[in-house]
Design a protein around this nucleic acid. Structure first.
Lengths: 281, 281
DNA sequence: CGTATGTGTGTATTATATACACAGTTCAGG
DNA sequence: CCTGAACTGTGTATATAATACACACATACG
């Protein structure tokens, strides 16, 4: 996040990087996944290695995990912006620089708390249901997780390095997806639809949490968002939107949870239709 | 983004803020929209006011818009992190503090470039199609916009203050949505499904852009993401995921654009089913 | 004309990340 | 047992931002 932009597109390993197109197919991605594993060490290394420390020197007073726990605690309490190297170290009773013995940079620490924050998906119950209800449960669980840790969505890193917990969530959907009998490529697509919907649908909660981190109450947040939307009313540029705001619904109001369920049902409907069509083919 | 957390939940206007539940219904939100408009001045004010400046003093050398343009230019070139108050002012040929005459804080400036960056949705063609193809076009346009300006998704502010351009995008969908004959509440839901999918589906592009900003080529990015995913292979915790990665698809590979279309079709299928059911009822 | 109202500048402060050198620790091996 | 390599936490220094504040100057209204 800090300053480390433009290091000239240098090719690691000397090979010439042929200008790849900006839009890559999933296929290219997956091949890279299979192939590149042995290249240099990346930032995400930390997430996977149980760095077997040599038995030399003084034993460390902390473990990476303790650091992560404290950092997460700070994020939970006061939002992502409360996670500073000095805040973390202070709470641990060490100097700022001590943290750097465990994580080479703040970014690496953030990567770690992202993965830790996601936790593991709820255990697949021994009794398996149909794929549809399993996917629905997964989506609910993921939403619950995101709502509980809204700072997860706060960082742009969400799409970056994937740790074991992250993969566990993927593993869980794919497991359920097996019941659909879809082709592997299609599974990938379905996964991204469902995950996309789930994350998108958690945005409101995230927005609220962000406002909360700014010191606003829920009511104030509603007022703020409302004020923005409210400007549409009377503005000739937004007739339909204004109408939407002012027209009372004929139906009973949905809670946010109900809204999520509604959308989820639509999304799954769409998927189901494709699954059925595939089976027939 | 900087430090302005915990200002004790003070009630503005003196009224007591009754502890509202964290989960608000869309309805509550909309009522707030209608009501609160006349409260105090918010950050988003800037996005709406053509602050009629008093004719006193020296005339300003710049306009807020010029500042926004330059800031956006910087973001386009080198990512969001390149947008610093000093970079913006330098490019304009002024001192850092000069910017503060136009925007009270960096945050306000970012709000402004978000709205500016979104631009207006493509004009609705005079000839209207069916709602489904109109929604699809909207989604494509939005995705194109997000891919062109990946830094938009980089900031947590994306869900925050909504300016005129933002509302214009909403207006456009809702206009198309009219063709469905849905209830206003349902329209809101459908909107959020579609928008959620679109934004989620643009994430990969965003991720790439972010890596690019870090100085990575597309190939390096694929390698990095690939390396993360590749760890699943052979790891006993992720059997299904590993299988997904290694199993070649029986179908011709989809490009990312095709993937988007595929997902979009599923989502619209789900919506369509509901629309049809509603009509029948 | 003079003063309230604005404008851009310069300088100082604060928060953060992080580089670097150091002093103390501990164990492996002679 | 002793020595030094490998490692630990600390202290200090630097760089980058954001932004508060006071100032010198500009301008048009009264």
């Amino acid at each position: 996040m800090a300053g480390r932009k433009k290091s000239e597109p240098q090719t690691r390993s000397g090979r010439v990087t042929k200008a790849a197109p900006d839009v890559l197919s999933h296929d290219v991605l997956m091949q890279a996944a299979v192939r590149v594993d042995s290249e240099l060490r990346w930032r995400s290394q930390l997430l996977w290695d149980d760095r077997a420390q040599s038995t030399r020197g003084p034993k460390a007073s902390l473990t990476p995990d303790e650091v992560v726990q404290v950092a997460m605690q700070l994020a939970d309490e006061d939002g992502l912006s409360a996670v500073t190297m000095s805040a973390v170290s202070a709470r641990l009773g060490f100097t700022t620089m001590a943290i750097y013995r465990y994580f080479p940079s703040k970014e690496a620490l953030l990567d770690a708390i992202v993965d830790a924050g996601m936790g593991l998906p709820p255990r697949a119950p021994t009794c398996r249901g149909d794929w549809r209800s399993e996917l629905a449960q997964w989506a609910r669980a993921k939403r619950a997780m995101l709502c509980a840790r809204p700072w997860l969505a706060e960082l742009p890193f969400v799409a970056a390095p994937h740790g074991p917990n992250w993969l566990s969530w993927l593993e869980a959907v794919i497991d359920s997806l097996a019941g659909t009998g879809l082709d592997s490529a299609d599974m990938g697509e379905v996964l991204s639809i469902l995950d996309g919907y789930t994350r998108g649908a958690s945005d409101t909660a995230t927005s609220l949490a962000r406002a909360r981190a700014r010191g606003l109450s829920a009511a104030q947040w509603a007022a703020e968002v409302g004020a923005d939307l409210g400007r549409a009313i009377g503005d000739p540029r937004f007739p339909h939107f204004a109408a939407l705001l002012t027209t009372p619904s004929t139906k009973p109001t949905r809670t946010m949870d109900e809204s999520f369920e509604f959308g989820l049902a639509r999304v799954l409907d769409g998927i189901e239709r494709y699954v059925n069509a595939s089976k027939r083919a």
